[in-house]
């Protein structure tokens, strides 16, 4: 089975997100910050008339912080929700066969294995495939249930 992944860079590593979860890549948009929200919530932005939250992916993954002037926003769809995440470099796309994706070792690049759905070799580099659903729901599920 073939899957396609949108590939982007965070610091020196390559990360991939299943293309089915990606709605688009945007230039950095003006953000309105959200007081009293967790630090990884960078703010909300106006994406063609919809208000979407923007997550600082590096902060969320616990990676070191450097402001990148070329930062972009990758817009992902998880379930009914649309969320933006900041990434460093413009995205490319790769096609991988399921057999090329291996389960992730317990810790890659200092990121919690919970957030990783697998790793693969692309252009002789390690591609870390992120599980957007888990990244977004890890601590949200409780909050949302509470509101139900």
């Amino acid at each position: 089975m073939l899957n396609q992944y949108v590939v982007f860079q965070l610091e020196d590593e390559l990360y991939g997100v299943n293309i089915l979860q990606v709605r688009g890549i945007e230039k950095m948009l003006p953000l309105t910050r959200v007081p009293n929200a967790p630090p990884f919530v960078k703010g909300v932005c106006n994406l063609r008339g919809s208000v979407i939250p923007v997550i600082d992916l590096k902060k969320k993954l616990g990676l070191p912080q450097k402001e990148d002037p070329n930062a972009k926003i990758i817009v992902v769809n998880v379930g009914k929700h649309t969320v933006g995440m900041t990434i460093d470099e413009a995205a490319d796309v790769v096609t991988l066969d399921a057999s090329e994706v291996e389960p992730s070792p317990s810790l890659v690049a200092g990121i919690d294995a919970e957030y990783i759905s697998g790793v693969a070799k692309v252009y002789n580099r390690l591609l870390i495939i992120l599980d957007m659903e888990r990244i977004l729901t890890a601590d949200q599920i409780n909050l949302l249930n509470e509101l139900r």
Partner: peptide, 12 residues
């Protein structure tokens, strides 16, 4: 306009 996701973070 509702925020598309993460209402839990926007309690204020």
């Amino acid at each position: 306009k509702n925020v598309s996701w993460g209402q839990g973070y926007f309690s204020s």
